[in-house]
Design a protein around this nucleic acid. Structure first.
Length: 488
RNA sequence: CGGGGCGUAGCGCAGUCCGGUUAGCGCACCUGCUUUGGGAGCAGGGGGCCGCAGGUUCGAAUCCUGCCGCCCCGACCA
């Protein structure tokens, strides 16, 4: 049998594309740069979404929905913001088609030109702040804590499924606060929520930090980021939370009355994670046999395969185990296909990343045994069918923990501290990964390093202690190390 | 937007240089039989405007011109 998946060592990006395709996560679409998210891929996103949505609600946020289209004039109200997004906006200019007078098909009706062109949202700050202006009058209206689940469009030159597509799904939170301190706390709170989600649910360890000015969101005063490390040694920005200061409040004239009857501009945050997380999930855990999913996000956590094929006795046992697992909240599937052989199914479910496979076999059953295979280590063992449910539930936890531990170990192995530029260059071009180095704090140095090595400052880490040193490039004094890496 | 590659069945490809009967192969699909504890075997079968549009020719997947699309590698971005 031909190998279905290119190995990571042979061609990493082909490996990634093979997994997306062979595990049935997404297809290319008729529209360049856009993908079709298939049921399995979407189920992963739905699981992420359900968890994040709960976490947002637990921290006091509510959901709403704002329009897909944004009047062009809104974009230009905040100077940095328009600068950041202008180059990648899809623009609606007309609102009607007509039959082609010179042949078949339809053409744009030139008489149906819009008075004001509409922008397909690349992000919703502008239309939301235009709305908030009407919602906020008094300090009693604050804080306003709103999230929306939506699609956005950024016209990218080069796309990859999940990691960068022209249209993607995400959530964007937009909050308004009476004080600067409260807005900063909000941005930090969500930063923490993102980090917890990444580690506890995705089993993807992240570094929490701040963006440098040049890497910051267009229109933000401060951007918090979680940065993950992929298996090819490149960094993935997995979620950002922005303190927007009063930039949008001023641009859209959003003021509130204080208890002292004084007029103030409100303070703002925005924050988002996207379907890019699915790409990060794939690249954090998967191997040359296919997708590996952490149990907490796996659409199917346990698959039960009757061996050699379904019959009445085997199915009775399978259904009893499945029912018991469902009662305990486990997502379980019984493979009822009687055409494919077990070997094929084993390979298939491995490719699809199902965390646990249970084989109920005729011969084992005579000894009251079932076979349990875990996807993360590929280990198999026979256990007693009696009480197997507890074992399986525990094993799911163990797999979840093991995946996080493995990813952490990988990150440790691929995090280097360097103190001179020669070492810096050789680590970046060699083993890659995160590189902790001193930086003089200037954009000039940052750009120069990027130009020479393709590495960018992923973040200024929040949790590391201060440590005096000298900039790895310029030799100027530095108070702390920052994280460099080549990034997605 | 630069540099390279590719468009032939659902997918992966051969055939194109050097034009010549009904355009092939593998996987997948359908039917039947035998199989069934790690990607089954045999037999039979269906499926193609050879990317599109012009041109050359008795004859074009093959040669010429133009267009379109996709992929890879760079510059820009979550």
């Amino acid at each position: 049998m031909a190998k279905e998946i290119t190995s990571r060592s042979e061609n990493y990006s082909q490996w990634y594309l093979d997994i997306v395709r062979k595990a049935g996560l997404a297809d290319n679409s008729a529209v360049r740069g856009c993908m079709v998210i298939k049921p399995t891929g979407f189920a992963i996103w739905e699981n992420m979404k359900a968890q994040l949505d709960q976490m947002f609600k637990d921290t006091g946020h509510v959901n709403a929905y704002f329009p897909l289209f944004i009047p062009k004039s809104f974009l230009s109200k905040e100077a940095d913001h328009v600068e950041g997004f202008a180059k990648e906006c899809a623009v609606v200019t007309h609102h009607r088609l007509m039959n082609n007078p010179e042949g078949s098909g339809v053409v744009v009706d030139p008489s149906a030109k819009l008075e004001e062109e509409l922008i397909v949202r690349p992000t919703s700050e502008t239309i939301i702040w235009n709305t908030y202006k009407d919602w906020i009058q008094s300090y009693r209206d604050l804080p306003l804590l709103i999230n929306q689940w939506a699609n956005v469009v950024r016209w990218e030159m080069r796309t990859r499924p999940f990691l960068r597509t022209a249209e993607f799904l995400w959530q964007e939170g937009h909050t308004a606060h009476a004080s600067k301190e409260e807005a900063i706390q909000e941005a930090e709170l969500i930063h923490e929520v993102y980090a917890r989600f990444a580690e506890d649910y995705m089993a993807m360890p992240v570094i929490k930090g701040r963006k440098t000015e040049s890497e910051r969101f267009a229109g933000a005063d401060d951007t918090f980021t979680i940065e993950a490390l992929m298996q090819d040694g490149r960094a993935l920005q997995a979620g950002t939370s922005h303190f927007l200061g009063q930039n949008f409040a001023k641009a859209f004239d959003v003021k509130y009355m204080t208890p002292e009857n004084k007029e103030n501009y409100v303070w703002a945050t925005s924050w988002g994670v996207s379907t890019r997380l699915v790409g990060g999930l794939i690249m954090t855990h998967s191997d040359d046999e296919g997708l590996v999913l952490p149990p907490k996000l796996a659409p199917i956590q346990v698959v039960i395969i009757p061996i050699p094929k379904p019959d009445e006795v085997l199915m009775q046992h399978a259904e009893r185990i499945a029912d018991n697992l469902k009662t305990r909240g486990i997502r379980v599937k019984i493979d009822r296909d009687d055409q494919k052989r077990p070997g094929f199914k084993f390979a298939q479910y491995e490719m699809e990343g199902v965390p646990i496979r249970v084989g109920i076999g005729k011969r084992d059953l005579e000894k009251n045994l079932i076979e349990v295979a875990r996807r993360d280590t590929k280990e198999k063992q026979s256990i007693s069918i009696n009480g197997c449910e507890s074992f399986l539930v525990d094993l799911l936890d163990e797999i979840q923990n093991n995946l996080l531990a493995k990813a952490k170990a990988f990150r440790e192995e691929h995090t280097s501290s360097v103190d001179n530029f020669e070492d810096f260059k050789s680590v970046i071009s060699g083993k890659g990964g995160f590189v902790k180095a001193h930086w003089d704090g200037t954009a000039e140095t940052e750009n120069k390093i990027k130009e020479l090595t393709k590495a960018t400052i992923r973040c200024i880490p929040i949790e590391d202690d201060e440590e005096t040193g000298v900039c790895v490039y310029s030799g100027a004094p530095s108070k702390r190390r920052v994280i460099f890496a080549k990034a997605y």
